[in-house]
Design a protein around this nucleic acid. Structure first.
Lengths: 334, 334
DNA sequence: TTAAATCAAGTAAACGTTTACGTTGGATTA
DNA sequence: TAATCCAACGTAAACGTTTACTTGATTTAA
């Protein structure tokens, strides 16, 4: 591998001069600059970022932790993160925690040793232990699609309660009064509960009833959960004309079994989702849903990291992203 | 930031001793080991991987280039790559090339400067320029879901022609004789052409006709391409009872407009896809398709990289992955 | 009892940069 | 003509490790 020394020797100058040229600082004539540039081309010299990092004490690298790298949601967020990281001449290291504590800790240790400049934590609750280890790393941290009640960590997120309200309100505006909800995990204080609250609030504000029979809690937010959820919901809550699903995957799972049961969407029953994954518009019928701007959320998180890095500030303002109602064809006007 | 020096000082030993303990090499008593370990805990010392990289001349990091990080396909491959990278104590840096030459070159330069140990190139044709720059980096390179006719670069891939044959054959076995195909890009020699060839071969081997009217070429492999493709196909090719789509997204796009046209899948027309994305099983009806083992492909590529790294060998055997027919409900038996 | 061997531990060079500081020599000034 | 200045470099230390080599004490062998 060719080093700055080789370039210096070949060009008959000191390494300091080469370094100055590389970082275009003053201190050399145009003639020597040309000569050095030429030698660099000839030898195919590429500065060693590792050596640079030793001195500059930064690695131009940030780490991102996902519970599941391969979910549609993660990958859009990742795209946003990567995009602005790239604009800031930084790379992103992805980590797949699989929601496993041991694994997560191993990653945190690795990222610490690699001296990443910042950390983004996606869709996973920041437990005490994680927080402490990250705090000891003393680098910017931003949360995406999650937050911490206990610690003041900047996050970017939509207002789930508000977004759920929007969804349910849309159903109501279309004349629905008997509405059920298939929720995700009841104990998920970040993405689970608030959506249920939004549902209930929308109902109450419109003078409609929403009892415990009208919402069904599943383990997660997946297709399978949707399949199971709709069966349970239909059993315990009668005469429903519309369903609010806590995720698009749930909505699609529900549509799937509704179709098997011979109940048509939206003719027999309306359904609204949450997320606006690419799949939503590909459904039959295309799914009306609440859009979360995933890639923008990732981009914002990245921006926050680089802002903290540049301004050498410990924290920054959290951002509540605007959600958006995307009307398609799964909700019928009564 | 606490360094090995601080630990050494605090423990009253030399940094060499600390280093030896860290890398558990011989040369110290159990007593000093204990003492040093204790100091390490106290100070919360974490070895600096950057400094290590300077000496060991490797970064425990590989780079991965995707044309589109946020596609379902990419993210599953990424999961596989990341998983075995993690097993090998390495990190992965993701790059989103957006199929842009300038951008790709910038990434390649960045990864070179960062001295990544290896490179994985996904789903994008390795043009001459890229090949040359990567060759000059002198690190292992593996291709995924693509290959190079010109250069001997190890790749992992399914046999597209063969897989397409399997798909079409399944249609034929179910009694279909009038079969059309919606292809991706005609000029894509890696994923485009071979699937068309597989289609034609299957038809011919079964004594069926497959003229140029029976296949329609789109720009890409997306939902939109499927929508446009099915319209064109239905115009130019009459009496079709089945369609082979070159990707699941195409298949789903086709299903979408077929539904609008009032033609039921599979009652009126059968359809088979290619990829087996998560969306396939969520469709109504669930899509019969050819599965590519994406995450395994990623895992294999990673393994190949680490194999080349460990055995200090310049190349390795390419791997053709087994595709699989996944029978669901979009193909009707005639 | 002594030479040889073993072992714990230290010293210092090396990895490839950046940068504070020192050194030239020619141009400008007094 | 000497003093001063400045641009254009060069020198060497520093970043935090690993590791070849050295040292000195202790054990072993004869």
């Amino acid at each position: 591998m060719v080093t700055i020394k080789d370039v210096a020797k070949q060009a008959n100058v000191s390494i300091a001069t080469v370094s100055r040229i590389l970082n275009n600082q003053p201190g050399y004539t145009e003639k020597t600059r040309m000569k050095v540039q030429q030698v660099i081309e000839e030898l195919g010299y590429k500065p060693n970022a590792v050596a640079r990092s030793m001195i500059s004490r930064n690695t131009q690298t940030i780490g991102v932790l996902f519970p599941d790298v391969s979910s549609m949601l993660s990958s859009e967020i990742l795209r946003g993160i990567e995009d602005v990281a790239h604009q800031n001449n930084s790379s992103v290291i992805v980590c797949h925690t699989a929601e496993d504590g041991i694994r997560t800790h191993k990653y945190l240790k690795l990222l610490h040793e690699k001296r990443v400049d910042g950390l983004i934590f996606v869709s996973e609750s920041l437990c005490e232990e994680y927080y402490e280890t990250i705090k000891s790393m003393d680098i910017p941290l931003v949360l995406v699609s999650t937050m911490s009640y206990k610690h003041q960590v900047p996050y970017v997120k939509v207002d789930d309660c508000n977004a759920a309200y929007t969804a349910v309100n849309h159903l109501i505006e279309n004349g629905h009064t008997r509405i059920g909800m298939i929720s995700g995990n009841q104990h998920d204080l970040i993405a689970g509960r608030p959506r249920v609250e939004g549902f209930k609030e929308a109902m109450q504000h419109n003078g409609l009833q929403a009892g415990e029979d009208d919402v069904v809690y599943q383990d997660g937010f997946s297709f399978i959960d949707g399949k199971g959820g709709v069966v349970r919901l239909l059993e315990q809550s009668r005469n429903l004309t519309a369903i609010f699903a806590a995720s698009d995957d749930i909505a699609i799972g529900a549509m799937s079994v509704l179709h098997k049961m011979g109940r048509k969407v939206p003719e027999d029953i309306s359904i609204i989702g949450y997320d606006n994954l690419p799949t939503a518009e590909m459904m039959i019928p295309p799914l009306t849903t609440i859009a979360q701007p995933f890639s923008e959320m990732g981009a914002n998180a990245s921006e926050m990291i680089f802002h903290m890095l540049k301004d050498k500030v410990k924290s920054t303002q959290s951002r509540i992203m605007r959600h958006e109602l995307v009307v398609r064809e799964s909700v019928k006007k009564l």
